[in-house]
Design a protein around this nucleic acid. Structure first.
Length: 597
RNA sequence: GGGGCUGUAGCUCAGCUGGUUAGAGUGCCGGUCUGUCACACCGGAGGUCGCGGGUUCGAGCCCCGUCAGCCCCGCCA
């Protein structure tokens, strides 16, 4: 094998025997060859110490007075930060008082007998080795000099975790008899959903491919084709404005299975998530609890509730109505509900805290936030004078607690109270009951009102099957219809979503018609799917796990950009390579394109 | 498309109420140093105060515009 067959260490190559971070006391006495980057150099005159770094860690190389003159010359003059060196020499135990307990390799060092700079480095534009307490460089610079930023141990750990998660997902799904199949990147524009990235065709003037927003239709056709269980680590593209947790291209663990119902799909996804979290060092229990969408909205005001904490939203209409609070009166007459949060220990919230909560509520279009605080016999707050101790007891506000409440239509009060709940938890520093609170959210509505017209529009992609009990009301009462759609949620983060698909081509045509597509358009855009469904389609459904977000959570990273090697900025630019950039005129001409000035 | 925050040395930041020659730490360059591990110590170089315009006797600081990065709303079937 390598190095003439006597090296069993996988790290070894024809140029090195070990990686830097793996040397220990057991290697003392061995002669090793290493390659790595100069992390730091400490030149004491007669002796020079070099911290040599690779992806496994750091080891100290010592060049003492006994080292060969050439080695001493290189160590004294040529070892600029971040240059690549190869070093050879014996591993020695450090004297007792010179061990470094903060370093995994701190009991030993390498005495250099050969030393060569094989990759000289210009002074780095941003530091790789940071001093204690030194802030990270501006993110703009980290993205521009990504090759340097990626040398930092934190980024290396994130990307190596990402690697392990990918391998684990592949293994778990393969063991569950899922088949990994790739689908096209050059595909067809979709009429619904996010904006597509378009790719002009050279061979077909005026025609365009689109990059996939997801492999949705392809994976359904794979079910029609009989592959039974499919998965893919799929790159997806959506041309929409970005966020901290949204990139224009992103990765999903995409899966689909045949002859399944919802329970089967949830089981497969749980298996993957449990293994991914295990890979990240967390034990989580199966099965995950389930909650209907309606319940989530009612108790938490969001479809991705954070169940690490108690503190549900409660309907206080019945208790509050008799009190005759002026702030609520007119809305109550219009049939609105009063909903609120009984915050245990909320007395610790200052007047300023409550005002800031109210401001946050107003930003979301809420009427404002009413509050009542009880401390011993004293009852205070914006609506305090309307409450007796008994009335407070009736809504669960005891001594030292605060009741926060608002009035209005659910579509306003739900997001307001969700926001207030999060803020309260954060401001009071409430400790989570458990580290990871997974839940399924099921029974999503099939339609939602168009924000402008109020007309029903599909809440999900148009391949989602309606709940069989609700199909009869599709036309008569669309908003009451549920979809066979489900989300996986962890600690208030949406990890992914899926559904059972429509397999009846007639139903699928009705849904497209509902979207306002003529039968000509339907055949032009979705003919290949409908043909498939007519060719003998098994019942099927699937899921897509947002892999970047999952990795971000497991890495404890603050941004998606910290778990993606080469991410885009919030304006979808790549600062490292400088994309996008103007095309040269000859290329445009060949693509039959003109750019308007 | 809208709102907010930030932009000063290679990097991280300070810079008062608008007032003399814009500072610190680190990095970089030169020097001393045989047990350091953010080595220490001595010396030095290094600035389009993002960019453009305006107000003012005078602008890093105030005003307008613009660019970039970040955060949020809209958007993301």
């Amino acid at each position: 094998m390598r190095g003439g067959g006597h090296i069993t260490n996988l790290s070894g190559t024809s140029r090195r025997t070990h990686r830097c971070g793996e040397l220990r006391s057991e290697h003392v006495g061995q002669r090793v060859r290493l390659g790595g980057w100069v992390h730091r150099r400490r030149d004491l005159g007669g002796i020079v110490f070099v911290d040599l770094r690779d992806r496994t860690g750091i080891v100290q190389v010592a060049i003492g007075p006994g080292a060969p003159p050439e080695v001493r010359r290189v160590a004294g003059a040529d070892l600029a930060s971040e240059s690549v060196v190869e070093v050879e020499g014996p591993v020695t135990a450090r004297p007792a008082k010179m061990k470094n307990p903060e370093l995994a390799t701190g009991d030993i060092e390498v005495q250099a007998t050969k030393l060569a700079v094989v990759g000289p480095a210009a002074t780095p534009a941003i530091p790789v080795a940071r001093g204690k307490g030194e802030e990270l460089p501006a993110e703009e610079l980290r993205l521009k000099y990504r090759h340097l930023d990626l040398r930092r141990p934190e980024m290396q750990a994130n990307l190596m975790l990402r690697h392990r998660l990918l391998q684990r997902a592949r293994r778990t799904l393969s063991e569950l008899e899922f088949v990994e199949i790739e689908t096209p990147i050059l595909t067809k524009p979709t009429p619904e959903g996010a904006r597509d990235y378009l790719v002009p065709s050279r061979v077909h003037p005026g025609e365009f491919y689109a990059l996939p927003q997801s492999p949705q239709i392809y994976k359904q056709l794979l079910m029609v084709a009989g592959f039974d269980r499919y998965f893919q680590i799929a790159r997806c593209f959506r041309d929409e404005d970005l966020r901290n947790d949204r990139q224009p291209e992103f990765t999903q663990i995409d899966l689909e299975a045949s002859f399944v119902g919802m329970d089967d799909v949830l089981g497969y996804v749980e298996a993957v998530l449990v293994d991914l979290w295990d890979e990240g060092g967390h034990t989580i229990a199966r099965p995950f609890p389930r909650m209907t969408w309606r319940e989530a909205m009612e108790r938490y005001g969001t479809d991705k509730p954070d169940l690490r904490y108690d503190l549900p939203i409660v309907d206080w209409t019945a208790q509050v109505k008799p009190l005759g609070v002026p702030f609520f009166e007119s809305a109550l007459r219009d049939g609105a509900r009063v909903r609120g949060l009984a915050v245990k220990g909320g007395g610790a919230l200052s007047r300023k805290d409550v005002d800031q909560l109210a401001d946050a509520a107003k930003q979301l279009g809420g009427a404002g936030l009413a509050w009542v605080k009880r401390q011993g016999e004293q009852i205070s707050g914006s609506v305090g004078k309307h409450f007796t101790a008994e009335a407070l007891g009736g809504i669960g506000v005891g001594d030292g607690d605060v009741g926060l409440m608002t009035v209005g239509p659910d579509r306003v009060t739900s997001p307001v109270l969700h926001r207030v709940r999060q803020e309260v938890i954060q401001r009071l520093g409430v400790k989570p009951k458990i580290a990871h609170a997974f839940t399924w959210v099921v029974d999503f509505p099939l339609f939602e009102p168009d924000p402008e017209t109020g007309k029903p529009v599909f809440a999900h992609h148009p391949f989602t099957a309606p709940h069989p009990d609700d199909v009869a009301r599709l036309e008569t009462d669309p908003f009451s219809c549920r979809a066979l759609h489900y989300d996986a949620v962890d600690n208030g983060n949406e990890l992914g979503s899926g559904s059972i698909r429509i397999t009846d081509p007639a139903v699928q045509r009705r849904v497209f018609a509902h979207l306002g597509l003529s039968s000509v358009e339907i055949d032009a855009r979705f003919g290949f799917l409908l043909n498939g469904l007519q060719a003998g389609a098994p019942p099927h459904g699937g899921f897509a796990i947002g892999f970047d977000r999952t990795t971000m959570l497991l890495a404890g990273a603050g941004s998606l950009r910290d778990v993606i090697a080469f991410p885009k900025t919030t304006t979808a630019r790549a600062l490292f390579e400088g994309a996008p950039s103007p095309a040269n005129p000859a290329d445009l001409a060949e693509l039959h394109l003109e750019v308007k000035p």
